[in-house]
Design a protein around this nucleic acid. Structure first.
Lengths: 342, 342
DNA sequence: CTGAAAGCGCTTACAG
DNA sequence: CTGAAAGCGCTTACAG
């Protein structure tokens, strides 16, 4: 590889000082238009690009954000939660739009976080996506907080108000999903998904679900809530358990689409028809949802907006501004699994 | 944020020179064990991390790779080709395993590439994923080549042997998919997907498909090949066109799973049963494939291996080694859409 | 508007 | 085994 051109090379050719080159390329008003043009032309000709390591070292910021994607321990090695992938797309776009680069890292949940991007000046801040067990997660957040790292988390509002967060309104999602089923005449509900504080997002969906039931004067039967992590298999097992217990239900609200798809499989195998016997609603609107059989009614999170807000909040934090937690409303996507005639 | 500790701070506390600190932290054999321990302990205590900008500037390499994901212009804005996402996962992992960071960027195909990661010393090399139109793509590759950028491409073998590439064996994939259908008694084949030089991967799948037909002494009917880009809609349209033309066929080999899923929808709407009347095989094994109705028989690419090889090839290139193009064998995933009784 | 100079925080020859 | 010093390529006060 030919030696890269430096600002000194350009200065030499342009017959100016290196400082002037640096100013010209950064469009400083201190340089005359004429000189600027000459310098820029030479820079283009030499295919010159400012050395980021040098400029970052000098200015002490990296113009780079880091995205830490924590994988669910439950997914197989090569599979990423499809919902996160959708977020990844919007985060990448939002980061680029702001003129930042994005460093990405997948972390095993088990392992200790390698979250020293900011300490090593590789990134100005960190976006955290996914956590596995929320209780463990909080300890890690504590450490980031104590190290004054700039970071913003996706998913659940943290009880420490000092943690910046962006989340979709999971309670509202659970509410509208359940209200929809109620409006279609369903009365006996099952909820599939962990409803404990270990999974605050699922728990909030559950809380919204319960609120809708209460608003409608319907019974909340704890025996029809079955824990499940977000996999097709867990959904299958959870629905099977309900069926084996002989539980009565005419609707299932699943805390995620994968759970819903697994549940549908279990229902079918048990000879139950979806949606005639049991209506099913999922959560996330992953691509699989529209191809499920029947196509899955689900709650869609606005990942586009979410990505933008995560990036925006993080940049504000870096600039030293305050950022209140953000809550994004969700929307209902009606397909056939809820029993409506499309 | 408290001022970050530097190697000088540590030197001061340890009562040694800054050079010794630097050596100790890099585990240089020139430093006594005892001194090393002392220095490392202080570094931990101060939460010290080597400043990457400074060290990269000094050593003139970034220990970072860049991933350029070029989106298909055909996908809607927030949706990424699910196959690429699976690659992304394995590339991220492989990069981390080698101790490198990964910078990621989504490029619009229309826009001019912003591929100056290496020129600005932000990355030591680039992995290119996706391209849209291959003919346009090649011009861009020319430029990278002329700038002596280190890069490796995924997908098709480039006719310039100087371009490092990793690809799955698309011809072999097309061959085994078609052979499988033939072994199940299918005789009249349609192929859905662009078979021109604008989509070399699809074309190779088509070539393998044709080879299998010829090997079996079956007719190759050009009228049963319909161009389609890799979307569900394009597959739907392509299959509809075949049906409207009154083409006879008892099997469809689709160049991608999305095309296959769209084709199945068209077949069903036309009152054709899958697989009884028409068997369908796709390509990629995206998550949707197993949830399609009927579940889709498809060709699986080993994304895990592919990601590792891309990273490995790129690192070799950076080290100045030669890298021959790599071809990874594919495998058949049999589900119900091909007509086998599972 | 321009230049000379300092300095960001490291790594690494050079000298001991 | 250790230290003093140079230098990676920028940005930006300071002086003119």
């Amino acid at each position: 590889m030919a030696n890269k051109a430096t600002s000194i090379d350009i200065a030499y050719r342009a017959g100016v000082s290196q400082s002037t080159v640096s100013r010209a390329l950064r469009d400083s008003p201190l340089v005359s238009e004429e000189t600027k043009e000459r310098i820029k032309a030479i820079a283009r000709e030499l295919n010159y690009k400012v050395d980021k390591n040098a400029s970052n070292l000098r200015t002490q910021n990296s113009h780079t954000l880091a995205l830490l994607l924590c994988e669910d321990p439950t997914n197989d090695d090569s599979l990423i939660n499809p919902f996160f992938l959708s977020m990844l797309g919007s985060i990448t776009r939002a980061t680029a739009k702001q003129g930042y680069d994005l460093l990405i890292s997948f972390q095993q949940l088990s392992s200790d976080w390698h979250a020293d991007y900011e300490d090593s000046n590789k990134a100005d801040g960190i976006i955290l996506l996914g956590y596995g067990d929320f209780v463990d997660y909080e300890h890690k957040l504590e450490r980031l907080l104590s190290q004054n790292t700039h970071f913003v988390i996706w998913g659940a509002e943290h009880n420490k108000s000092s943690v910046a967060s962006v989340a979709c309104d999971n309670q509202q999602g659970g509410l509208i999903a359940t209200e929809h089923l109620i409006s279609l005449g369903r009365r006996e509900f099952a909820f599939l998904g962990d409803a404990s504080s270990h999974s605050p997002e699922f728990r909030d969906r559950y809380l919204g679900h319960v609120r809708a039931l209460k608003n409608a004067g319907l019974a909340v039967d704890k025996r029809r809530q079955v824990d499940a992590i977000s996999t097709e298999n867990a959904g299958f097992e959870a629905a099977n358990m309900l069926i084996r217990k002989g539980a009565h239900f005419d609707a299932i609200f699943a805390a995620s689409d994968l759970i819903a798809v697994g549940a549908i499989r279990a229902l079918k195998e048990a000879g139950l028809r979806v949606p005639e016997d049991v209506a099913v609603v999922g959560y996330d609107d992953i691509p699989v949802a529209s191809f499920a059989n029947p196509p899955l009614t689900t709650i869609k999170q606005n990942t586009q907006l979410a990505g933008e807000m995560l990036v925006e909040s993080l940049l504000k934090l870096i600039r030293g501004e305050k950022v209140p937690p953000k809550l994004i409303p969700t929307s209902l996507v009606v397909r056939k699994s809820c029993g409506i005639d499309l």
